[in-house]
């Protein structure tokens, strides 16, 4: 197969899968920009949606008072698209409060995750202590159980500790579920760094801890980024555990808040979609800005040398 054909095939393949990936995203953006709750429409044609009007003063724009064909019966003239859903989202719902709640929980989980995984992974990678192997296997074993299986034990545990309807309860669960992977990830990365670096630092006058934070930690930024991202994702997007732990709408995180737009009789699809778009923005920015670390971090932990 010549190279040109191969390139074409690769690009065709990638294009098809890009479309698969992008279509739902476009759909959500489209729904969020629609002026009604036209969720069921089958096209992405939000830009064509245009109510007819009579241009009395002939200025090319619809002006207040000019008659129009109110196709969606909402008593306002709608042009192709509108940011109304976003406006409503920020002004008439508790979205900002949920965002703040989510930010708070995510920040604490991420900091906890990075702090504990970076030190825990280091201890496992560098020190020989009794129960080291057992600790590693135990951490791995926890990853075998699906989150739903742990819901009831978590709920009972948190109830007994009086941590239902509390961020501390949520943070403990998020951190404990994200930590095993993060510790393994950090351990794998530290294993690739020669011990001679710390030994050299210790001979240069550093204590064990100074050698860790002055030499090893700065060199581990790719793994730290992965750990931070993983911890971030573990809490920012999480719904099921939050739904169990948080019952007061004032304490809702973003996924819970968004779900509350979905009522039994009428779902506010416009708001729902606008919320989904806004929620995904920080994640997208993080992934794009950290993509460089992401690729190197994921592969560097796996291969020694």
């Amino acid at each position: 197969m010549n190279n040109k054909l191969k390139t074409w095939l690769i690009f065709t393949f990638l294009t098809i899968f890009t479309l698969f990936t992008v279509y739902p995203v476009l759909n959500i953006i489209s729904v969020s920009l629609r002026t009604d709750n036209a969720f069921q429409t089958k096209s992405l044609s939000f830009l064509d949606f245009d109510e007819e009007y009579t241009d009395i003063n002939n200025n090319g724009n619809w002006d207040k008072g000019e008659p129009f064909n109110d196709e969606n019966f909402n008593n306002s003239w709608d042009s192709g698209s509108s940011l109304n859903s976003y406006k409503t989202l920020f002004t008439e719902t508790s979205f900002l409060r949920w965002a703040w709640n989510s930010f708070l929980v995510t920040l604490v989980v991420t900091i906890t995750g990075v702090a504990l995984a970076s030190t825990g992974g280091y201890a496992i990678s560098r020190f020989n202590f009794k129960g080291r192997q057992f600790t590693m296997i135990s951490l791995l074993t926890t990853q075998m159980f699906p989150a739903t299986m742990l819901l009831l034990p978590f709920f009972i545990l948190l109830s007994k500790l009086g941590l239902i309807n509390s961020y501390i309860g949520l943070i403990i669960i998020y951190s404990s579920t994200a930590l095993p992977f993060c510790i393994w990830q950090m351990k794998g990365y530290y294993d690739t760094l020669p011990a001679a670096l710390e030994e050299s630092a210790r001979l240069d006058g550093c204590s064990q801890f100074q050698a860790f934070y002055k030499i090893i930690l700065p060199l581990s930024s790719p793994a730290l980024v992965i750990t931070a991202l993983f911890s971030f994702m573990a809490s920012w997007n999480e719904y099921v555990v939050a739904a169990i732990v948080l019952q007061d709408p004032e304490l809702y995180t973003l996924p819970l808040g968004l779900k509350s737009f979905q009522a039994s009789l009428a779902t506010q699809w416009g708001l729902y979609a606008a919320g989904a778009v806004v929620v995904s923005i920080p994640v997208t920015i993080l992934f794009i800005s950290l993509a460089r670390y992401l690729v190197s971090g994921l592969t560097m932990g796996s291969v020694k040398g």
Partner: peptide, 29 residues
């Protein structure tokens, strides 16, 4: 402790700090 022995060591793999310049490497201790 190694840090208190006033010993310097050259390692097989050099063990230079990759995130520091030569000057920073030499001046670190």
């Amino acid at each position: 402790e190694p840090s208190k022995r006033d010993i310097a060591m050259v390692f097989q793999n050099y063990a230079l700090y990759p995130h520091m310049s030569v000057f920073e490497n030499m001046s670190f201790g």
